[in-house]
Amino acid sequence: MIDTRTPEARERLSAALGIARWVAEVADGGPYATVDELVAAGEQAAAGLTDAELDEAVGHHPRIGERSEGDGDGSRLSAGEQAGLGPREEGVDAALARGNEVYEGRFGRVFLIRAAGRSRQEVLDELQRRLKNDDEAEAAEAKEQLRQIAALRIAALFEEA
């Protein structure tokens, strides 16, 4: 049984997705019998993310290719996700840095992507593809990426508990 109503569980949920409404909805829906049930509840609660919630979540994510500041669960998870991109590649990393600048100038927020399971080149390809999106399509893609990130982080944070 996973009791998500404790302060410790809420802190973990906040590290999975730093959106107050989402944390409250998932936490208050507990306890959950399994991690899979908890992940499903998190995905369901993330299905209706608003643009304001997207903006709220952005502050908890470093740029792709940059280290997260802090030492909490969210920073630790972010560092692990980005480390999974593989070794640094000068040309790809330079292109990611340039792409991040263009993206931020165009959309007004950092580029959000589920890094887990992707290479640096795959992230760069996605960044370049998504730069062609209009504002509405890109907001929808960013919200979907947050949902995927949250699902992976919930599993990691609550399976180790």
Rank of each mutant, 00 (worst) to 15 (best):
G70M: 07
G91F: 00
D3N: 10
E25G: 09
E160P: 08
R118I: 12
E53W: 15
A156S: 14
G74V: 11
L157S: 01
S68E: 14
R120L: 07
V102E: 14
E43N: 07
G108N: 09
Y103Q: 05
E8N: 07
W22I: 03
S78K: 14
I2F: 07
R88N: 05
A16Q: 01
L54Y: 11
G42W: 13
V39R: 00
A116K: 11
A155D: 13
G117W: 04
G99T: 04
D93L: 01
V102P: 06
A40I: 05
A15T: 03
D51T: 12
R114L: 13
A155K: 13
G99I: 04
G72R: 13
D125Q: 06
S75Q: 09
P62T: 11
S68Y: 10
L77N: 14
R147G: 01
D71T: 15
E101G: 11
D73W: 14
V23D: 06
D36K: 00
A45C: 13
D55S: 06
G117E: 01
P31H: 03
A79R: 14
A142P: 05
T34N: 02
A47W: 09
E53Q: 12
D71Q: 15
R67P: 14
R120I: 10
R12W: 02
D28H: 03
E89W: 06
A24R: 13
A83V: 07
E122L: 02
V39I: 11
D73K: 05
I113S: 09
E101D: 15
G84W: 08
S119V: 07
R67D: 15
D134Q: 14
F107G: 00
A155T: 14
L17Y: 12
D28K: 00
V123R: 01
G99C: 02
E53H: 12
R106Q: 05
E122Q: 13
G91V: 00
R109A: 02
E136F: 15
S68D: 12
R130M: 04
L152A: 04
Y32R: 01
G108Y: 11
L49Q: 11
E126N: 07
A45D: 15
